[in-house]
Simulated assay, not measured.
Amino acid sequence: MDNLEVHGTSGPPVLLLPGGAEATLGFFPGLIEGLVADPGCHVIVHDRPGTGTSTLPGALADAPAHLNELITEVGLGPAVVVGQSLGGAVAVLLAQAHPENVAGLVLLDPTPINDPTLCSRIERMTRTLAALDRVPVVRGLIAAGLRASVARSTRNLDLRPECRAVFDRTANLDIPQLDRTVHGLAELSATLAPKPLPSVLITADRKPGAAITQAHTRLADALGATLRSFPGADHNVQLTHPDETLAATRALISELR
């Protein structure tokens, strides 16, 4: 399997799925090392086709089958799947399509895969951005805007150096790649029927009435998941609250044991 690393030599398997089309390695600061140290895990690091460092084309609809093949190939299923943003949506899709290879889910402010309306909005937004990005002058303005937005966010957040570095990396967003990655999101959302599974869903610290908060509440109910939030947590909860992310993952693994 292309660009595959397995960290640790024993223990329960954990598969990491980053947000957007980001590379997995480095995306979850401290999580790999923390899980290998305690409780002792096999941590699977892999960029699926169409994302990160993978040189292979890939579609969102193909992700569950590809990841199921990956888990089977390394012989480490069923795995606890940790997914942030779009990675969280992929984790839910994987659990629905291949429940035999998913022991539990840790969803970090996941893309609301259970809400077709919100998913359609996300697809439209990325499609529009990709169209604008094809205009050189506008591409420069978008890039400058992203850098300024990330800079404002990092000024207002008390981040560890390694977390700040990952946050800064998000300013180099490959918009066409992201557009390809989310293509088909709304269609997949419309057919979603999540079933109960040991899970924890960590939602960002938003207003209670926010549409995405309501979607997360419904998804947690459908999965029978513990729904949590941390004061000041933003969409990148693995960066704003790395210790809490590690603790929540450890707790689910302990529960499964």
Rank of each mutant, 00 (worst) to 15 (best):
E162L: 12
E162Q: 13
V166F: 00
F167W: 11
D168W: 02
T170G: 00
N172F: 01
D174M: 11
P176A: 12
P176Y: 06
Q177G: 01
Q177W: 05
L178D: 01
D179W: 02
D179N: 13
D179F: 00
D179M: 04
R180W: 00
T181I: 05
T181M: 13
V182I: 15
V182Y: 05
H183Q: 12
G184D: 02
G184C: 09
A186N: 09
A186I: 15
A186V: 13
E187Y: 04
L188V: 09
S189W: 09
S189M: 08
A190K: 13
L192Y: 06
A193I: 14
A193S: 13
A193M: 12
P194L: 09
K195N: 05
K195S: 11
K195W: 05
P196Y: 03
P196D: 09
P198I: 14
P198Y: 07
S199H: 00
S199P: 03
V200N: 03
V200Q: 06
L201F: 05
I202Q: 03
A204N: 10
A204L: 07
D205C: 01
D205E: 14
D205Q: 10
D205K: 12
R206T: 14
R206A: 13
R206Y: 00
K207A: 15
P208G: 01
P208Y: 09
G209I: 01
G209R: 07
G209P: 00
A211P: 07
A211N: 07
I212R: 06
T213H: 05
Q214K: 10
Q214G: 07
A215Q: 07
A215N: 04
A215R: 11
H216Y: 14
H216V: 15
T217M: 01
T217A: 08
L219K: 06
A220P: 06
D221C: 03
D221E: 15
D221K: 11
D221F: 04
A222Y: 00
A222G: 01
A225S: 06
L227Q: 12
R228M: 10
R228P: 02
F230M: 06
F230V: 09
F230T: 02
F230P: 00
G232I: 10
A233Q: 03
A233G: 11
A233R: 02
D234V: 14
D234R: 10
D234T: 15
H235F: 01
N236I: 13
V237I: 13
V237C: 03
V237T: 14
V237H: 10
V237P: 02
Q238W: 07
Q238S: 10
Q238G: 04
L239M: 15
L239R: 01
T240F: 04
T240W: 04
T240E: 06
H241N: 11
P242T: 10
P242K: 03
E244T: 01
T245K: 03
A247E: 11
